[in-house]
Simulated assay, not measured.
Amino acid sequence: MRLTGLIAVLLLIAGCSRATVEAPEPSPTGPSAPSISSAPPSPTPSSSKPSKPSAPPAAGAAIADVIAWIEAGRPADPAGYHKATREGEVTDLIDDVAFTVPAGSRRATTCMTDSESTDSALACVVDLVNPPPQPEDIYGQWKGGWIDYGGNTLRVGSAHGDPGRFLHGDGAELPDGSSLSFGDYRCRADRVGLFCVNYAHRSAVLLRPEGIGTFGCLHPVPPPADAAKLFSCAS
């Protein structure tokens, strides 16, 4: 009897455990799903290029601003500036560069490189309004507007008994707003004057009839006996 009663209890428990597990009723709006936005992701803003300078650098401007102004000029093809002309005769300067920059009512500024020079890679003759006077101990033909720019030095005024590197004449005109690259230099012609930078020494100059300006490391130092002014990057 006890065995029969035990079996009856077990059958009762098994019947109670057969409860049906029903799935939850769907909501009136349908089954929920992960939300996916149909709008495309916002693009990551790219870094914008710095705007080109709108005006020439003033006296005392940072060298970075001067370089930016020069590099904003229209690049000229250096191939057009390897010749010099004198009285109709054209000379091929091979690796050297020559160019001229208009100077309004005054004579154009003329520049030329000399790969064989140990003192100055770039020389320019500027028709200065007030050229420095000839030093007392200097003899010969004094040219107060002769500029020697070697990058780490700038000499103003020099005595020359002959045209020197300008023996073959002048180079082609560098138009206003154009820039010319050669060696460690880059120059830009502008209505204000001629801006030139030397990348190796991070120095720059402004050549114009009204006077000579310097930027970067160039600062005035006592000139030698054969020059009127000297600027140097040396401390």
Score class of each variant (00 low, 15 high):
2 R>N: 06
4 T>F: 01
5 G>P: 02
6 L>Q: 06
6 L>T: 09
9 V>P: 00
9 V>A: 10
13 I>F: 01
15 G>D: 05
17 S>Q: 14
18 R>P: 01
20 T>F: 06
25 E>T: 11
27 S>R: 14
29 T>P: 02
29 T>R: 13
29 T>I: 07
31 P>H: 15
32 S>K: 12
32 S>Q: 12
33 A>Q: 12
36 I>E: 12
44 T>A: 15
49 K>C: 03
51 S>Q: 13
53 P>K: 14
56 P>S: 08
59 A>K: 10
63 I>W: 01
65 D>P: 00
66 V>I: 09
66 V>G: 04
66 V>H: 03
68 A>Y: 00
70 I>P: 02
72 A>T: 12
75 P>I: 04
77 D>M: 09
83 K>F: 06
85 T>A: 13
89 E>I: 15
90 V>N: 07
90 V>K: 13
90 V>M: 12
91 T>L: 10
92 D>A: 13
93 L>M: 14
94 I>C: 06
95 D>K: 15
95 D>T: 15
96 D>R: 06
99 F>K: 11
102 P>D: 08
103 A>W: 01
103 A>H: 02
103 A>Y: 02
104 G>W: 06
104 G>E: 09
106 R>G: 03
107 R>T: 09
108 A>P: 05
109 T>N: 01
110 T>G: 08
111 C>T: 06
111 C>V: 08
116 E>Y: 03
118 T>R: 01
119 D>Q: 05
126 V>P: 01
126 V>Y: 00
127 D>L: 06
127 D>R: 03
131 P>M: 11
133 P>T: 11
135 P>N: 06
139 Y>M: 08
139 Y>D: 10
139 Y>H: 09
141 Q>R: 05
147 I>H: 00
148 D>W: 00
150 G>S: 15
152 N>S: 15
154 L>M: 12
156 V>T: 06
157 G>I: 07
157 G>W: 02
161 G>Y: 00
162 D>E: 07
164 G>H: 04
165 R>W: 00
165 R>P: 00
166 F>W: 04
166 F>D: 06
166 F>E: 07
166 F>P: 05
169 G>T: 03
171 G>H: 02
179 S>G: 11
180 L>H: 13
182 F>E: 14
183 G>Y: 06
184 D>T: 09
185 Y>D: 12
187 C>Q: 13
191 R>V: 11
191 R>A: 14
195 F>D: 11
195 F>S: 10
198 N>W: 02
199 Y>W: 09
201 H>Y: 14
205 V>Y: 05
205 V>I: 15
207 L>V: 11
209 P>K: 04
215 F>D: 03
221 V>H: 03
223 P>M: 06
223 P>Q: 08
227 A>I: 00
228 A>P: 01
229 K>Y: 10
229 K>D: 14
